[in-house]
């Protein structure tokens, strides 16, 4: 099988959202001595770009985005350890993501994480019901560029403000951008607590994250 065939097969596993096949093809590519970075860039990323295009055109829905991202993740688990010391997968930014303390709603947050990962961000998902201090600790630990805080309740959205205050207290606010989301939140809320941005859904969160790290807009998610 040629290198081009491998890249196309990897792209196809992402398009089909086939995790098992993605892992299997990645292993075969590594065993055949293909360049792992090229497999990522010309296979997986290309596949994810095509998924994004199909999503933008209305042919794909959220499950295809998520399943494509899962397939990509499964192949990356094989390919990233095979990168040469001199190689590094291009990352748009590092993101700490979580649902705030007192709030157990995490599907939206998880969806944001999946799409950010697929778009080229490195995501650290700290889970749900997380106090502000955990967000700050994760930022320190990962040297994050972005924090994403999700709240689905009017009673828990105030924790988003606490996170900003604790980032300030820790001297990290200038080095990290904060984006907030969740059903009760809005741009006006984000402005009032000094957040850097607000998104109403996962697609919007990807666009916002790109904006906050000065990356060009993702064409797949533009209408």
């Amino acid at each position: 099988m040629s290198d081009a065939d491998y890249f196309e097969r990897l792209a196809r596993t992402v398009l089909d959202g086939d995790e098992e096949e993605a892992e299997s093809v990645a292993k075969a590519a590594v065993a055949d001595g293909l360049d792992a970075l090229e497999c990522i860039n010309r296979g997986l990323t290309e596949g994810m770009n095509r998924v994004g295009e199909l999503f933008a055109s209305g042919d794909y829905f959220l499950p295809e985005l998520i399943m494509g991202a899962d397939a990509m993740k499964a192949a990356l688990a094989v390919l990233e350890p095979a990168l040469l010391d001199t190689q590094q997968r291009e990352v748009l930014g590092r993101v700490v993501l979580g649902t705030v303390e007192g709030d157990v709603h995490d599907i939206g947050k998880t969806l944001v994480g999946t799409l950010l990962t697929a778009d080229g961000f490195e995501v650290t998902d700290i889970g749900f019901d997380q106090p502000a201090s955990e967000f700050v600790a994760a930022v320190k630990e990962t040297n994050a560029d972005l924090v994403g805080a999700s709240a689905l309740l009017t009673t828990t959205m105030r924790v988003q403000a606490q996170i900003i205050e604790e980032l300030k207290a820790a001297g990290l606010r200038d080095s990290v951008k904060v984006m907030v989301g969740g059903a009760p939140t809005a741009q006006a809320w984000a402005d009032s607590i000094g957040a850097d941005g607000h998104a109403v859904d996962a697609i919007g969160a990807v666009a916002l994250a790109r904006l906050l790290v000065d990356a060009p807009p993702s064409p797949e998610y533009d209408d």
Binding site: G17, L62, P63, I66, M67, D201, A207
Partner: peptide, 24 residues
Amino acid sequence: LRERHTRDYFHKMEFSEVLHVPDV
């Protein structure tokens, strides 16, 4: 959302081209 069943049924469902059409 990551189940094939969901993926397949989303495509079998009827979605309006007038109502609930997402904006950017």
